[in-house]
Nucleic acid binder design. Structure first.
Length: 175
DNA sequence: GCCAACGTTGGC
DNA sequence: GCCAACGTTGGC
């Protein structure tokens, strides 16, 4: 798929050309029992390889949308409560997901040819925890956030966030 | 190309 | 633990 394939459709803005120095925003999900925001902060260089994405829509956001320096909300799923708990940044843009071509790895996908990979990873680095977590309940209760991809397409592990949504949630975390 | 069966995610 | 909302697979 080439970037031109993203020109149409609902998410075209996510892939559209950027103005100089434009930063975009994303949300990534992790189960805290598996890898929490604190785990990320404790990792070497506070950075981890964000691999294991096996959904094409999420893959496209990750591979074609995310650029180095973009900010990401770090969301804890399947936890109590489900909430955005921290901010990270894209430390390295998309590269072939090594877990997809590793026969011994649970994420192995026989369809992914190492010479023509299907699945991609980025590196995510911790920036700072939110002053307080912003819960999914609060997000759903806020009309400004009704169109947020997190709410609309809940099961995706990588979703875009608009600047307005970003601002709104950061403000919520500060009061 | 249609669609039923199945698998996965993740909120509840 | 249940189930809604998908995406994927494979028979036809």
């Amino acid at each position: 798929m080439s970037p031109a394939d993203h020109d149409q459709g609902k998410w075209a803005w996510v892939f559209a050309p950027r103005t100089p120095n434009e930063k975009r925003y994303w949300l990534v999900k992790s189960e805290p029992d598996v890898f929490s925001f604190d785990d990320l902060r404790a990792a070497p260089k506070q950075t981890t390889q964000w691999d294991g994405v096996r959904n094409y829509a999420a893959r496209n956001f990750l591979r074609d949308g995310m650029k180095k320096g973009d900010r990401v909300f770090y969301y804890h799923s399947s936890s109590n409560p489900q909430a955005i708990v921290g901010i990270g940044e894209v430390a390295r843009e998309a590269y072939p997901d090594p877990t997809a071509t590793d026969r011994k790895h649970a994420g192995f996908d026989a369809k992914s040819d190492p010479n023509n990979p299907i699945w991609f990873a980025v590196d995510i680095k911790a920036v700072a925890p939110l002053k307080r977590p912003v819960t999914l309940t609060e997000i759903k209760a806020n009309k400004t956030l009704a169109d947020m991809a997190l709410v609309r397409i809940g099961r995706l592990s990588v979703t875009p966030v608009t600047p307005k949504e970003w601002e709104t949630i950061v403000a919520m975390s500060e009061r």
